[in-house]
Design a protein around this nucleic acid. Structure first.
Lengths: 163, 163
DNA sequence: TTGATATATGTCATAGTATAACATATCAAC
DNA sequence: GTTGATATGTTATACTATGACATATATCAA
């Protein structure tokens, strides 16, 4: 339940594990995990940060996997629809899900300095918002929670060592 | 502390009150509440829903208050910067603040059927996200909380009466 | 009142994000 | 192998947002 994103980790295996996991879930759900979709997921996992659709498209173009915007957007639609990738609305960008094994409502910590993004878990059914929603008769289906600030690496303590 | 937005209320006075309140706050803070800025706020208050920048620009154009995108965006920048208006990232749209008297972190309930938006209050310092942030050394400065679902008026109970 | 500075507006141009529409290809089931 | 559903290729366009620079207005000091 750590908010993956600011700490070091074994990145190669993290990418491989995530791809395998998604592959398996597509298999069992009867979803087509096509080359473009797989490659887009890999790109996002390798970067481990939020990428714009056109950045992703540039990569696909270099690899002859597509050159027009719909190619990237369709793959991203598929991946986000099934929860393998999340969209960061604040940045108009996309990031691979850091917790692909569980259904969840993600929350993001976005560093305004280095643009790194950490994903944490939340529980919609708790908290003030849920109380207010149920009190007014609003039924929440999805939620976006994005916090902006300074990550540990960009906080003043670290800045001092650069000055 | 009710989530204004789905309930009936005295709309004329709500608009007038909000404009007066913003006017007073600009006065005391030495901010220029210019005609375009005031009109944009009024438009948002009158509609009482989220409007896109270009919808607002259309209104301004009709009233000869400006015809180019920067006119609308500058007014919206001013209003959002000072908390008189909020941006709904999910919709790329803007809505007048429903609680202009207090500094706050807004949370929004967005109806996917009728696009109405209700604003509620949250407290960033409580909850899971704050715990995770402090545990990882991330300092939250701002946050976006947008929930999507069905408002009371669009929930199945009401739909039945239309069928 | 004038001049200096900061702030706001008018306008043109362009950048960045996203989707509609339709033809073609591939997959999955019968 | 035909059929129907799903996915891709491609063109065009819509929607969202900002850079840049000239002009105007406000604020404040002398």
């Amino acid at each position: 339940m750590d908010p993956i994103g600011f700490a070091k980790h074994d990145h190669d295996s993290c990418v491989a594990d995530a791809v395998s996991s998604v592959e398996a879930r597509c298999q069992s759900a009867g979803l087509q995990f096509t080359p473009v979709r797989k490659r887009v997921l890999e790109i996002l996992l390798e970067e481990h940060r939020a990428l714009g659709a056109y950045e992703i498209l540039d990569r696909l173009r270099d690899e002859n996997l597509g050159s027009q915007p719909p190619v990237a957007y369709r793959a991203l639609d598929f991946l986000t629809k099934h929860g393998f990738v999340h969209k960061i609305e604040r940045l108009n960008a996309f990031i691979a899900c850091a917790h692909p094994h569980e259904v969840h409502t993600p929350a993001f910590l976005i560093c305004r300095e280095c643009n790194s993004v950490a994903e944490a878990e939340t529980d919609l059914t708790q908290g003030r918002l849920a109380q207010i929603a149920s009190a007014t008769g609003f039924s929440i289906e999805r939620a976006i929670l994005e916090a902006e600030g300074l990550c540990p690496n960009c906080s003043p303590k670290h800045e001092a060592s650069n000055a």
